[in-house]
Amino acid sequence: NQESVVAAQLIPINTALTLVMMTTRVVSPTGIPAEDIPRLISMQVNQVVPMGTTLMPDMVKGYA
């Protein structure tokens, strides 16, 4: 089963992602794949992401 990127903390809107903000977990439905974490660093979220929420492609500016 593929791991997806999950918020390790509350991420406010327009925050640039850092490694410490993200963790990985096997979730359903699947979100952004864990191997894309290096690509996500410094990208901004376009909404508030509560802790434990799976990051979906449409939540990250410039990802999709």
Rank of each mutant, 00 (worst) to 15 (best):
N1A: 15
N1Y: 10
N1V: 13
N1K: 15
Q2E: 12
E3G: 15
E3I: 13
E3A: 15
E3R: 14
E3F: 13
S4Q: 02
S4F: 03
S4L: 01
S4V: 03
V5E: 01
V5N: 01
V5F: 02
V5P: 01
V6F: 02
V6K: 02
V6T: 10
V6S: 03
A7C: 03
A7G: 03
A7N: 01
A7P: 01
A7L: 02
A8R: 10
Q9S: 08
Q9Y: 06
L10W: 14
L10I: 08
L10Y: 12
L10A: 09
L10M: 12
I11M: 07
P12I: 03
P12W: 04
P12V: 04
I13H: 11
I13P: 05
I13C: 03
N14W: 08
N14G: 07
N14A: 15
T15H: 07
T15M: 09
T15S: 14
T15P: 00
A16W: 13
A16T: 05
A16V: 09
A16I: 05
L17Q: 00
L17P: 02
L17D: 00
T18V: 04
T18C: 03
L19I: 10
L19S: 07
V20E: 13
V20R: 13
V20G: 09
V20W: 14
M21C: 03
M21Q: 06
M21D: 11
M21F: 05
M21Y: 13
M21A: 07
M22G: 00
M22V: 10
M22Y: 01
M22H: 00
M22A: 00
T23V: 09
T23E: 11
T23N: 09
T24S: 12
T24F: 06
T24W: 05
R25Y: 12
R25E: 09
V26K: 11
V26L: 14
V26H: 06
V27K: 12
V27M: 07
S28W: 10
S28C: 03
P29Y: 09
P29H: 06
P29W: 03
P29R: 06
P29F: 04
P29C: 03
T30E: 11
T30Y: 14
T30C: 04
G31V: 03
G31Y: 02
G31H: 02
G31E: 02
I32T: 02
P33G: 07
P33E: 05
E35V: 15
E35Y: 11
D36C: 03
I37L: 08
I37D: 01
I37S: 07
I37F: 07
P38R: 15
P38Q: 12
P38M: 12
R39E: 05
L40H: 00
L40C: 03
L40W: 02
L40V: 14
L40G: 00
L40A: 01
L40F: 02
I41P: 03
I41R: 08
I41Q: 11
I41V: 15
S42R: 08
S42F: 07
S42Q: 13
M43P: 00
M43S: 04
M43N: 12
M43V: 05
Q44F: 10
Q44I: 06
Q44D: 05
Q44V: 10
V45Y: 00
V45I: 05
V45N: 02
V45F: 02
V45G: 00
V45W: 02
N46T: 14
N46I: 10
N46S: 07
Q47G: 06
Q47P: 02
Q47S: 11
V48W: 13
V48R: 13
V49L: 11
V49E: 00
V49S: 01
P50A: 14
P50I: 04
P50G: 13
P50V: 09
M51D: 08
M51K: 12
M51C: 03
G52K: 04
G52H: 10
G52R: 06
G52P: 00
G52T: 05
T53P: 01
T53D: 11
T54H: 02
T54G: 02
T54A: 06
T54K: 04
T54E: 02
L55R: 01
L55E: 00
L55N: 01
L55M: 14
M56Y: 07
P57H: 11
P57N: 13
D58V: 09
D58N: 14
D58Q: 13
D58S: 15
D58W: 14
M59R: 02
M59G: 02
M59S: 03
M59E: 01
M59I: 03
V60I: 13
K61I: 14
K61W: 11
K61G: 07
G62A: 08
Y63P: 06
Y63N: 10
A64L: 09
A64I: 13
